[in-house]
Nucleic acid binder design. Structure first.
Lengths: 243, 243
DNA sequence: CGCTGGGTTGATCGCACTCAACCCGCGTGG
DNA sequence: CCACGCGGGTTGAGTGCGATCAACCCAGCG
């Protein structure tokens, strides 16, 4: 579900933009997906635009739709009754919503920016996947990748210190940017400190303190939403928990 | 990967036991998997027995095999260089190993008991899945379910107190037993306090203290590896984090 | 017998949380 | 024009939950 942390090369549903408004088709050459699938996909899709803080799906709702984010970013979180919140992933342009789905959504997806998306009826997409086994395979790969990422995050949440989690988060963002062909170094933080905290299982104060700590140690320079990584190797070492 | 926490009904690869030593075939009627698939599966499988503490797969090894546990239990964990350990799941009889796999294993799987398993060559199984799209679909479902479970665990590790985590763990075990047709109430703890701690992101002392705390509160009775749940509703309420 | 693994309990510590003050930039409206 | 509120961020002081260190118990076993 989360693209932020995805390590794998992007797969078809990430590349394809089947909404009429934007005919990006470069995915058709990617991994052997044919035009036929894309045509069929386009026929079952509806697009929409959301404002920040609007919900794409809400925890507990009947899971009748899958989505593809075509522009903007969102957060995926779970809530406890008293308001405690755990962000289980961030979604960015190109990401798919619907990998971890039962009969109801087990999480809420909320737009962080103004956001465009495509909606697929669940039944429609599943039916289409039945006709294109290769797509089924890709979806399994994506779910597997997400699972590996989730396990990595469990390690962080269960066993890593605040410093290690924050360092790891910065490295994740840097690698993600690199994977998308952007510059890996000035890392952009598209989310607030509170969101970072809810992702890392910390408080926003601890995130802020830890960033200044890493700054004081000369590993990074922080400027609002931008982080310059000056000693990436050291940052990685911290993130991996080396003594 | 973890069966412990799986909420979904068991799928084919969990039921099937394609090793020659045990011809359990009840799975053939389950979810429309035909004998043909099972025959093919049997042809690519090799079985083996392991002692406690032996490794089934080791973090970092080339991922050349998938496995099906046919008897016994195992733990799946990730390590940090200084020895900190996070168990990301437990595996029991019938469970499948290989959902969250890239080119190398991202975790270690270690037998907790004497254990029997079947080994599938990765290429063989993937090739077979290519011929049986329905199986591919089931594997995706399993991966999706695991992902949902992992997200639930992230919530626990990131935001729940020790008391909530332990209560939730007991409820998980109880529900799992029920799902497997066993009595839900006297919950058996097949693993040590240290393993529970490594799963819940706590120390073994905290797990022990928390169990006695729940006992003092009259919610459970503890006898070594057995836990009698006397007030399940209250336990659930605690686990869900209700104020 | 004594050793070992697993478990419980006690005393103390420390990391991250909590509560609070304060800063800054921005938009709104008097 | 400045006043004000507000969201986002930083920093400080004090607290507390769970970690750490340690002692002890018990059962199984060689």
């Amino acid at each position: 579900m989360t693209a932020l942390t995805r390590e794998a090369p992007r797969t078809v549903l990430h590349k394809v933009d089947p909404c009429g408004s934007c005919g990006a088709r470069e995915a058709s050459v990617c991994r052997g997906v044919g035009d036929e699938f894309l045509d069929r996909l386009a026929s079952i899709v509806a697009s929409r635009t959301l404002d920040p803080h609007e919900l794409i799906v809400a925890e507990g709702d009947a899971a009748t739709s899958y989505f593809n984010i075509t522009d903007g970013s969102a957060k995926v979180y779970k809530l406890l009754p008293d308001g405690r919140q755990q962000i289980v992933g961030f979604l960015f342009t190109g990401d798919f919503v619907g990998l971890a789905v039962r009969d109801t959504y087990a999480y809420t997806v909320e737009a962080m920016t103004r956001l465009k998306l495509c909606r697929f009826g669940r039944g429609d997409l599943e039916r289409l996947l039945g006709e294109f086994p290769h797509m089924e395979h890709l979806l399994r790969q994506m779910a597997s990748d997400e699972l590996a990422v989730a396990q990595e995050q469990m390690l962080a949440l269960g066993r890593k210190t605040a410093r290690e989690r924050v360092a790891g988060f910065l490295i994740q963002l840097s690698r993600r940017a690199e994977r998308l062909g952007q510059a890996p170094n000035p890392v952009q933080l598209p989310m607030t400190r509170a969101d970072i905290a809810d992702y890392l299982g910390l408080t926003l104060e601890t995130v802020s303190r830890t960033l200044t700590l890493l700054k004081s140690a000369g590993l990074i320079a922080v400027d609002r939403q931008t982080v310059y990584v000056s000693r990436k190797a050291d940052l990685i070492e911290i993130a991996e928990g080396e003594a």
